[in-house]
C-alpha cells in the first residue's frame, strides 16, 4: 500500500515541465497535478511511474478564463473551483451541478478538471461533460501544441489520444446559448462512488420545441459519448412524458454496456434508461439556465 519509488521534479514554468516530460516520457514519466486518481493507483501498485513531473507550481496553468465564446479551464483548475457557478449562465450552473457528483469534498479540493480527462476513467463526470458539450482538449509537448476534439480524445478506458511526451494544458468548452436548458443525473450506490451510469443533456427551445439537442452518456460504456440517435429523436419535439420515455428507451437500446460481476448488461441498460429519463426531467423542471 506504499507507492513504488520514483524520481520527483517540480518545475516552475511550462517550458521546463515539457522539457522534463520529454526526457522522462519514455521511462514512464507522468504528470502529477491533483493526484487524486494517480496516487491511489500508485498506492495500490496498479501504476508505478518511474518519474513524476509535479506541475502544481506553474502559475500559467492556474484558473479559468472566458475567451471568445468559450470557457478555458487550465490544467490546475480544481473540481472545487466549480462548487459555485464559475461563469454566469447555463454553463456555470451545469458545471456546479456536475461538480457536486465528483468524489468527495476533500478530493475536489485537489483533483483537477484536466487531470480527470488525462486519466480518462469511463465514470468521469468531466470526461462526459467535455464530450457532451463538444469541448476540445489543448495538449502540448516540447515539439508543439494540438487542439483535439473531446469526442475523439477518449479511445478506451484510461486510454486517450495523448502521446507520452504530451500534457493537457487546458480544456475549452464552448459557451451554450444563454437560454439553454440542461439536466444531469448520475446513479451510484453510495455518495461519491464511481458512476454506474449518468446522463447529461443540454438543448434550447423554440416555441416549446427542442433544438440543438446534446445528450451524452457516461459510466456505462468504455468511453463517454453523445447518442446521435436519441438527439435526433428529441430534436423538434416538445419535452412530453412520451418523448422522455421514448428517448430513454432508445438510449438503453443503442448502448454497448460495460459489464462486471455486480453490474450485468441488462442492469446497466436499465440504469441508462433511468438516467436519461431523470436528466430530461431535470431539464424540463428547471427554469432557463437554472
Amino acid at each position: 500500500m506504499k507507492p513504488a519509488p520514483f524520481t520527483y521534479q517540480r518545475p516552475g514554468n511550462l517550458e521546463e515541465a515539457l522539457d522534463i516530460l520529454a526526457q522522462v516520457a519514455h521511462e514512464d514519466g507522468r504528470i502529477l497535478a491533483g493526484g487524486q486518481s494517480l496516487v491511489p493507483m500508485m498506492a495500490l501498485r496498479l501504476a508505478f511511474p518511474a518519474h513524476l513531473v509535479d506541475i502544481n507550481d506553474i502559475p500559467s496553468l492556474q484558473g479559468i478564463e472566458v475567451e471568445q465564446q468559450s470557457l478555458v479551464i487550465r490544467a490546475l483548475a480544481r473540481h472545487a473551483h466549480f462548487h459555485q457557478p464559475a461563469v454566469s449562465g447555463p454553463l456555470g450552473s451545469m458545471l456546479a451541478k456536475v461538480a457536486q457528483n465528483i468524489a468527495h469534498y476533500p478530493v475536489r479540493q485537489r483533483g483537477t478538471f484536466c487531470g480527470s480527462l488525462a486519466h480518462a476513467d469511463p465514470a468521469s463526470e468531466w470526461c462526459l461533460t467535455a464530450v457532451t458539450l463538444d469541448g476540445s482538449v489543448m495538449v502540448q509537448s516540447r515539439n508543439g501544441s494540438r487542439e483535439l476534439p473531446a469526442g475523439t480524445f477518449f479511445q478506451g478506458p484510461m486510454t486517450t489520444a495523448l502521446e507520452p511526451d504530451e500534457m493537457i494544458t487546458a480544456v475549452r468548452l464552448p459557451m451554450p446559448d444563454a437560454g439553454s436548458r440542461f439536466g444531469f443525473y448520475e446513479f451510484n450506490r453510495r455518495a461519491g462512488d464511481f458512476a454506474l451510469a449518468m446522463c447529461q443533456v443540454m438543448f434550447t427551445q423554440e416555441e416549446d420545441r427542442m433544438t440543438g439537442v446534446r445528450l451524452g452518456i457516461g459510466g456505462a460504456e468504455e468511453v463517454p459519448r453523445r447518442l446521435g440517435e436519441v438527439e435526433e429523436m428529441l430534436t423538434g419535439q416538445r419535452l412530453t412524458e412520451k418523448a422522455i420515455l421514448s428517448a430513454s428507451e432508445c438510449a438503453a437500446s443503442v448502448i454497448t454496456p460495460l459489464e462486471d460481476i455486480q453490474t450485468p448488461v441488462d442492469y446497466r441498460r436499465h440504469l441508462v434508461k433511468t438516467s436519461v429519463r431523470r436528466a430530461l426531467e431535470a431539464a424540463r423542471d428547471s427554469g432557463n439556465g437554472q
Binding site: 500500500m1 506504499k2 493526484g35 487524486q36 496516487v39 491511489p40 498506492a43 495500490l44 472545487a80 468527495h104 469534498y105 476533500p106 478530493v107 479540493q109 485537489r110
Partner: peptide, 22 residues
C-alpha cells in the same frame, strides 16, 4: 492509504485534503 476512508484528512493551505494522496 488510498484516499477512500478520510482518516488522514488534514488542512493544507486552508483546504481539507487526504494526507495519503499528497
Amino acid at each position: 492509504e488510498h484516499g477512500v476512508c478520510g482518516s488522514c484528512t488534514i488542512i493544507v493551505d486552508g483546504a481539507p485534503v487526504r494526507a495519503c494522496l499528497m
